[in-house]
């Protein structure tokens, strides 16, 4: 429980989550201290996105036991938007499409939702352009409809744009690297690294070492069948890359829920 500022940003204790009465997470315990980057790895279907969704309060994900604290607050009885305004952010594995809603107008509303006073239209435009430049995004994206017709990589980049504009204190990146080309991967990683060192805690969900070469994690956790079975330093990710998950007897779905 040591952190740069002595305070744990995210603390998950023995979390059990069910979807449609099937238990997917079976007691997850995990801390992401402020200022640290943690990687969460694990085979397909092991429950990584389930954890991400449950942390953000998706109504379809039923928390049956356990606790989640963020900045010292119990967040499990908070609505999704309240968690967001508290500083939590999820970059989605599959971002939803919102036809007819422009990226810029959506982001301005979202930014204002977490500010005391409203940002002026001009100031917002400047901020948005600056962040888009940082992510080497065509300014035209600002007036496109949110995720509609975006390519896979464009959707991911758009998620990171939102991260950069909203400046949360905890970012959960759910496979943000998949679908990104090599240049985009580097740009996204640069973006995250630039925000690093502040109080931002990051939980990176990924299948690949490649991203972790750019965003070096402080800790790596392995999720198998809804449980964290091992945690370690960045060398753990390298080992997983070489050996896979076989040693955990994984990739079998559990029937013993």
């Amino acid at each position: 429980m040591t952190a740069t500022n002595g305070q744990t940003t995210l603390s998950i204790r023995d979390l059990h989550v069910s979807v449609e009465d099937a238990e997917i997470l079976r007691g997850v315990t995990l801390d992401v201290p402020a200022g640290e980057v943690h990687a969460l790895m694990g085979p397909n279907g092991s429950g990584k996105s389930t954890l991400a969704n449950a942390l953000m309060g998706h109504p379809a994900y039923d928390v049956t036991a356990g606790q989640v604290h963020f900045k010292g607050r119990d967040v499990l009885d908070l609505e999704t938007d309240e968690r967001a305004r508290l500083g939590m952010f999820l970059a989605f594995q599959y971002p939803a499409e919102i036809p007819g809603v422009r990226v810029a107008s959506f982001l301005r509303l979202a930014l204002n939702a977490r500010r005391e006073s409203e940002i002026s239209v001009m100031a917002f435009r400047r901020l948005l352009l600056e962040k888009m430049q940082m992510l080497r995004m065509d300014p035209k994206f600002a007036s496109r409809y949110l995720n509609e017709g975006f390519s896979g990589g464009e959707k991911k980049r758009n998620e990171i744009l939102q991260l950069a504009v909203l400046e949360p204190e905890l970012a959960i990146l759910d496979e943000t690297d998949s679908g990104l080309d090599i240049d985009a991967l580097r740009i996204v990683a640069d973006g995250v690294n630039r925000l690093r060192g502040s109080d931002l805690g990051v939980l990176v969900i990924t299948h690949y070492q490649r991203l972790l070469n750019y965003i070096e994690p402080d800790r790596v956790h392995v999720l198998i069948d809804g449980r964290v079975v091992e945690s370690g330093g960045k060398e753990l990710a390298e080992r997983l890359e070489a050996e896979g998950y076989e040693r955990y007897g994984a990739a079998t779905t559990s029937e013993d829920a």
Partner: peptide, 28 residues
Amino acid sequence: SDQQLFYLMSRGLTQEQAMAMVVSGFIE
């Protein structure tokens, strides 16, 4: 869809704001 609402709310919009946003996009 729940997915749309969740997405918008995960950025800090209240449920009503999220709903109004989907509707205004629909008639845009």
